[in-house]
């Protein structure tokens, strides 16, 4: 079963729109939603959670319609936003006392284990925790009620590289169970590269590309060549290019690159940047 299934999602605002977005998060997989600031990642997540109402299209979460049946699966969803939403005056212990009444499947033992594992001070007010600690706490809460689906919106932004790496490790552990899925949005592509099975590129409210990460590596490569050599490659095989006085750098379909031009492995961040530049 797909953890999330979005078809033809549309939502219009005054100066922005989500335009016909399709996205599938297969069960047991991790999808990274990549896009620049304002690309529509957070809006898409809010649409999935029915915090904003869609204009058209369909969204199914854990097999249920997100408008009429979402309440029935919220027990199985853990959500982490980019900023802290827990009352700053509460301590993690008090927060646990509250959450055990909110989630039927709340596992206090697991919560306490996570607090210890992540070295979170149990009796320090949340307002006095560092940003990294607050994020770990949010993830702890999201994982302490046996959620099957985690939805994280810019959960790693604003964190230092060490904490980001910790967070990625926590999430990797979460995905060890077969039926656990994650949808994570970020503009820090390197984080997603470590974690994700699928990559979805969003740009100006549109889904530019949705592909398995390994297939992206297999299909695309970076080439450094002259402008003339670049012209010998069919234009529809070139995802993006940068031409300077030193020559040309491009990302192209490996299969379309002529012999004699060396193809280097592509990283997702570069692919994303080139793609956006080409569109603009």
């Amino acid at each position: 079963m797909n953890a999330i299934e979005i078809k033809g999602l549309c939502k219009s605002f005054k100066e922005f729109e989500i335009d016909n977005v399709d996205l599938t998060l297969p069960g047991g997989c991790v999808v990274g939603l990549v896009g620049e600031n304002g690309a529509g990642k957070s809006t898409t997540i809010k649409l999935i959670l029915n915090m904003i109402f869609k204009d058209s299209g369909s969204i199914r979460v854990l097999g249920k319609d997100n408008v009429t049946e979402l309440d029935s699966v919220k027990e199985e969803i853990g959500v982490v936003f980019d900023e802290s939403y827990f009352p700053p005056s509460l301590t993690p212990v008090k927060l646990g006392n509250i959450m055990k009444h909110i989630y039927r499947n709340w596992d206090m033992q697991r919560y306490q284990d996570y607090l210890q594992q992540f070295s979170l001070p149990e009796k320090r007010p949340i307002g006095k925790l560092s940003r990294g600690m607050k994020m770990k706490l949010a993830i702890t809460v999201a994982m302490s009620h046996h959620a099957k689906l985690l939805i994280l919106d810019e959960a790693t932004s604003g964190l230092d590289p060490v904490v980001r790496d910790d967070v990625i490790d926590i999430l990797t552990d979460f995905t060890r169970e077969e039926d656990h899925s994650i949808l994570i949005s970020s503009h820090i592509v390197s984080d997603l590269e470590k974690l994700c099975d699928y990559i979805a590129f969003m740009h100006k409210g549109k889904m530019m590309l949705f592909e398995e990460k390994d297939r992206l590596y297999e299909q695309y490569g970076v080439i450094h060549c002259t402008e003339k050599e670049l012209q010998s490659i069919p234009s529809d095989a070139v995802i993006g290019k940068k031409i300077g006085s030193y020559g040309a750098e491009a990302i192209a379909l490996r299969s379309a690159v002529p012999h004699g031009i060396t193809v280097y492995p592509v990283d997702i961040e570069k692919l994303f940047i080139f793609m956006i530049r080409e569109r603009e």
Partner: peptide, 18 residues
């Protein structure tokens, strides 16, 4: 107001709280 300021309200919308 506190619920809105702390974004607790937004969070509640993602939990089983009806």
């Amino acid at each position: 107001y506190e619920d809105e300021q702390n974004k607790w309200l937004n969070y509640c919308k993602t939990t089983p709280v009806r």
